[in-house]
Design a protein around this nucleic acid. Sequence first.
DNA 1: AACAAGATTGGAACGTTGTTCCATAGTCTC
DNA 2: GAGACTATGGAACAACGTTCCAATCTTGTT
Lengths: 228, 228
Amino acid sequence: MRLMTKIRTERRADALSKERIVEAAIAILDQDGEGALTFRALAARLATGSGAIYWHVADKQALLAAATDHVIARVTALVTAKAVSGATPQEAIRALALGVFDAIDAHPWVGGQLSRDPFQYAVLRILEGVGGQVQALGVPQQAQFNAATALMSFILGLAGQYAAGAEFHARDMDRTTALRAVAAKWAQLDPIEHPFVRQVAAVLPEHDDREQFLAGIDLILAGIESVR
Amino acid sequence: MRLMTKIRTERRADALSKERIVEAAIAILDQDGEGALTFRALAARLATGSGAIYWHVADKQALLAAATDHVIARVTALVTAKAVSGATPQEAIRALALGVFDAIDAHPWVGGQLSRDPFQYAVLRILEGVGGQVQALGVPQQAQFNAATALMSFILGLAGQYAAGAEFHARDMDRTTALRAVAAKWAQLDPIEHPFVRQVAAVLPEHDDREQFLAGIDLILAGIESVR
DNA sequence: AACAAGATTGGAACGTTGTTCCATAGTCTC
DNA sequence: GAGACTATGGAACAACGTTCCAATCTTGTT
């Protein structure tokens, strides 16, 4: 008896595969937003039927998780590679966080997906990256869990907010005018009931999301420093 | 000509109203989870048709936002009342954060909704509560925005994660056994690629979400302290 | 009391979605 | 070639959010 050659011999040039499906899904998501990804649109783009797609992918959740992982894997791989080549743990954490932020900026749907499913592989990747650097930071073992998950929660929280905001304006306007519109609405709130939000509204249109994000990371890093 | 008496005279005892609809929605969400809230189920519970509901509510998003606000308004009102009666800003922030956490624990769907729409009124309420205490903390004006939104993002991030996790097990098992299952899966990961997650898996089943949440808040508060 | 105008109701109907089912076609092992 | 397994494409199904509309109820005017 011969060992079965499990090597997939190219059946056809245009054969379906999980990878091709995921890439097509990402293309749709990037081009037309989260709402545009349907199995019909996907089947049309791949010139096949929805049944064929289900042969390779369990369901829509799995498809979204795979697409998200595809994007996040790039980020974590790139950053952990940098981390090896002599950077402080703080710098590595900042780089990882910014990598995730930029990925969400480029693919807003990733933000929504990350904050929706805590046990998907992409989230685990980020936790591993953050956790490793927290260890390198010299945080005592019992505190590592809380420190790493705090960083994770912050990243995912802002990810979700930013993504939802991006989904919100999408086509109609650019980000600045959208923020200006929100600020205008907030400025009209009751000064007695919402003094702080009104104050925020004044600086909202000019603020830089990236800087805000990094400031939050630095805040938590400073907090971790004080525990160490 | 006489001024129109715009006072709504009770049309019928069982008249529909936005409030009754929101309360029924909350009942369904609490009882059977986020997926169970449909306009058909809502209409059945209220003994009416879906068209009648649309007369009072714009769409499903508005309904979920109203339901979320209904829950969160209670929390912020309660906590800001406490804050007035002499508590340190730190204590007030902890109380507010824990209030939100407990609300999500009691109504997991609130977590999902909060992290999905950044401009809904409930989020604004939390931001106002947090921001007011950040001011009271003596944080310089330029840093207040970053400090408050960092706390917000952390709260919403963990809210989303916790809610998604709660939705995940829901009926089948309680939280501890669900965590044990996840921990078991994580423990089987490649030790080279995922050392930190494997370490986390060991403590995952015994950890207390509430404590973890509070630890994160304290970490950020410590970070804010160092900036002050 | 009768009427018109608007507010409110209940349920049918529409278009779209995720998913399942199935008849067919391709590919590999004997 | 005969089967067995893999893979495909599209029809069909149930459920959803939403729209539409005829019927009813309430109010203000005569």
